[in-house]
Design a protein around this nucleic acid. Sequence first.
DNA 1: TTCTCTTATCGTCTTCTGATGTTATGTTAT
DNA 2: ATAACATAACATCAGAAGACGATAAGAGAA
Lengths: 266, 266
Amino acid sequence: MTSDVDGDTTELSRPARRQAEIAAYVVKHGSVSANDLVEAFGVSVMTVHRDLDELERQGVVRKYRGGVSAQPTSVFESNVAYRLNTATAEKAALARHARAMIEPGMSVMLDDSTSALALVDLFEDITPLTVATNFLPAISRLTELRDVTLLALGGLYSATHDSFGGMPCAEAVEALHTDLLFCSVSAVSPTHAFHQEEEIVLVKRAMLRSARTKVLLVDHGKLQRTALHRLAPLTDFDVVVVDEKTPDDLIQPLRDNGATVEVAKL
Amino acid sequence: MTSDVDGDTTELSRPARRQAEIAAYVVKHGSVSANDLVEAFGVSVMTVHRDLDELERQGVVRKYRGGVSAQPTSVFESNVAYRLNTATAEKAALARHARAMIEPGMSVMLDDSTSALALVDLFEDITPLTVATNFLPAISRLTELRDVTLLALGGLYSATHDSFGGMPCAEAVEALHTDLLFCSVSAVSPTHAFHQEEEIVLVKRAMLRSARTKVLLVDHGKLQRTALHRLAPLTDFDVVVVDEKTPDDLIQPLRDNGATVEVAKL
DNA sequence: TTCTCTTATCGTCTTCTGATGTTATGTTAT
DNA sequence: ATAACATAACATCAGAAGACGATAAGAGAA
C-alpha cells in the first residue's frame, strides 16, 4: 500500500484535528500513557483525557488506568471523524457528478458514507425530493431543507459511524424502494466492492435490493485496498463513479470486468 | 378553558421567541400582511419574512402573496417550538419522577414529547440503558451518551414535531418490546388520553403495544382540554404521573375511573 | 407596463457555544 | 497510606454561527 493517506487535516476544528492525530499516534505506538500525549501535543492533561474519552466513545481506542491502547486498524479506518477528512476534494467532485443523475421528484437513498454527505449539500436546488438515509449527519442536514421528504432509516446507533444499522435498519430498508441509491465502500477490487464490518454490509446489501438505479461512489484511495467482507460484484451497480485522480490503469480492469465506470471531473 | 397558557417565553432565543409571538399573533388575527407584522414587532420586512418562512416550514402558517394565514390551532399547539416553552418546570418534575422508575440495564421507549426530552437529560446517571425513540432532539442528545444503546425509530420526518412517524415508524416500533414506555399526549379526559393528529396516534398506539410498563406523563394544562383522536383509555397505562400543581378535584375523577395516578413533586 | 411584494446577497454586529486550563475532589493501585 | 492517575467543577477566552437590516434584483398582480 502506498503511504499517502491524504492527511487532509485542513479545514477541521482544532480539537478534531488533534484527536485524529492522537488516534494516529496511538495506532502507531500501540499503547501510550496520557502524559506521553501531553508532551507530544503540548496540551494539558485534562484535554488529553477529554480527547481520549471521545476517541473511546468512537471506538478507536481503549482506555485503561495508566494509558490507552489502539483498536484494530479496521475500526480506525471506518471511523467517521477519520473519513470526514480524507479526500474531501475528491468526494465533492463525486457528489457533483452524482447530482447530475438526480431529477426533481425522485426518491434517493443514501448510505452512511461521507461521499453521500457531500451530496446532501447539493440537494437544495433539486427539490422536491424524497431522501432515505441511515446517516445521522445527513438526517440532521435534511431536516432543515424544505421540499425534501425525509425518510429516516432507524436502527441501532453506532458512534463509530454516526449512523444507524443492524437488523432494524435493514428491515426499514426492505420496506422501501427508491429510484436511486448512492453508496460507498471501504475498498474496491477489479471485480467487487468490499467493506470491513458485517453489520454495515448487512444494511448496504439491503439497500442494493431496494433501489432501481444503484450508484457506487469511489475515490481513488479505495482502489488499492482490500477489506474483510465482500459486499457485491461491481456489476450489481448500474454506475461506478471514480474521481479524476484515478489512474487509468486502475480504471481499465473494472471496465474489463463489465462495470460501467464514469469519471467525475474536479 | 382558562386562559393561562403558561407563556414561558423566558430562556428562549430572541428570534424563536419572536416567532412564537408572531405565530400567536397570526393565529389570533386569522391572517395578516407582512407589513402589519413589521409594525407590530418593530423589525425589518426581511426579518419578518424569514420568521414566516420558518413558521411555514414548521407548518404553523401558510404564506401567500400579500400575507400569511393561520393553520388550524391544533397544528399550532402540537408544534414543537411552542411545546418546548410550555410548562417547563412541570415537565422537569415529571421527568424526575419518571427517572425513579428506571433501573440501570433497562430498555426504555420514549415518544416525541417534550416531557420525554426532559427525561433524557437525566439518563447519564442510570447507565447502562437501552433507549428507543422517534424524537430527533432526543436522538441527538442520546448519541452523545456513553453506555446508552440507542435504537432510533425511523420514519417520515415531520418538521412540526421534529420527529419521525408514519407507517415505517409504527413498523419499527412493532419490532421491539421494551421494559418501559414514557409518553405524553395533548389532552387527557377523566377516562381517556387524546391526541390531535392521526399519524401520531398511530405511532403512540404501537408504542403502547410494545412496552411492558406504560407510563403517561401529564402536566396539569392537559387535563382541562380535549383533542380530536381518542388514543387509549387511561387504564391502559400502568401509571399516570401528574405534576404537583394539578388540583385534587381533577385528579380524583381519574382515580375514580380506575387509573393509577402518581403526583410528581416539584 | 408599473407597482407591490418577495427573495437574494452582502456586511456588520451580537450572541453563543465550544475549547481549554486550573484547581479541587475522587479513585485505584502499590 | 500515599502517590499516581482520573474525573469533576468552575472560569476564561476565542472563534463560529446566527441574527439583522440595507440594498438590489426578481416575480407576480393589476
